[in-house]
């Protein structure tokens, strides 16, 4: 039972990160109809920038802030310099370009930082506090929950309640009409990319200390898990992405705890295939999924 509680908390903490990362994927998908396969590589790049800043200044928090800013900028840059110029007539084109970005970013990181693992620092202790003799959750888990909670509710508030959120939704749903109403659709798209990439960078900062550390490929499997989370929730649904993230986090934690951590990649693949074959629109699809 103790083990179950521990695995559940660990799964939720991991799942919160997947949720944020999946949410970033959903943001871009809704705005641009592109699944950003480069999101993992972009987030790692931001984490490397944070690593450089933190080792130079000795401040974790400065690096943390810099990572998010770097993520925002990188997202805007990718949209303006690359994605804006891709012919979206076939859905394969942006996917292929995103994969080119993956190769490019990972290679540049490898050239600058080398391919060895760098330590990823956690700002709080990762050893679990015990409540009534049961190890429950660590200060770091609390930090993860709080950060993701703030970001997710902040995004939800922004999209639902602020003028810029309204503009972004309008631009995503009906770009042509939105332009007629004076919305700078291109700018909203860039903002969407920046926000998503910033959230991705944040997720990378939170997940890397729990993994092997910093490496150009460190987010590959996280990306696959987050993509699975986004598909579980339905690519069009931000709340679905959050629930999907938690589901995937829990599943992986149980598989890892009861069957062995080697099996987690296989579990992700099986879950992804199962969801896509049974409910291609995701478990929370409100209507028939948009065929792509």
């Amino acid at each position: 039972m103790d083990r179950f509680v521990f695995l559940t908390v660990d799964g939720l903490s991991r799942g919160a990160v997947y949720a944020a990362f999946a949410l970033a994927l959903v943001l871009i998908w809704r705005a641009a109809r592109v699944v950003n396969f480069a999101q993992g590589a972009m987030a790692v790049a931001a984490a490397y920038v944070a690593y450089t800043v933190s080792t130079a200044t000795g401040s974790y928090w400065l690096g943390f802030v810099v990572a998010i800013v770097a993520g925002l900028l990188l997202g805007a840059l990718v949209d303006r310099v690359v994605m804006r110029h891709v012919d979206h007539a076939s859905p394969l084109n942006p996917v292929i370009v995103a994969l080119g970005l993956v190769l490019l970013i990972q290679a540049v990181l490898g050239m600058v930082y080398g391919s060895e693992f760098r330590p990823a620092e956690a700002p709080f202790s990762r050893s679990a506090l015990t409540v009534g003799g049961v190890a429950v959750l660590s200060p770091y888990d609390l930090f993860v929950f709080a950060t993701i909670g703030v970001v997710v509710s902040g995004l939800a508030w922004m999209f639902a309640r602020t003028p810029v959120g309204l503009r972004m939704r309008a631009a995503a749903f009906a770009p042509e009409v939105s332009r007629l109403l004076g919305v700078n659709v291109g700018g909203m798209l860039t903002l969407g990319w920046a926000l998503a990439s910033g959230v991705g960078a944040l997720a990378a900062m939170l997940v890397l200390p729990t993994e092997l550390g910093l490496h150009p490929h460190a987010m590959d499997l996280v990306f696959v898990s987050a993509f699975t989370a986004a598909v579980v929730g339905g690519l069009d649904s931000p709340p679905g992405a959050v629930v999907g993230g938690l589901v995937v986090g829990l599943l992986l934690s149980y598989v890892s705890g009861y069957a062995g951590s080697d099996l987690t990649p296989l579990a992700v693949l099986v879950l992804l295939l199962a969801v896509l074959l049974v409910r291609p629109g995701g478990l929370f699809a409100p209507v028939a999924a948009r065929r792509v």
Binding site: P163, A170, F173, V177, S178
Partner: peptide, 12 residues
């Protein structure tokens, strides 16, 4: 814009 409410459409 069918995904937005009447009020959101108008405010837009």
């Amino acid at each position: 814009i069918s995904e937005l409410t009447v009020d959101e459409n108008l405010r837009l």
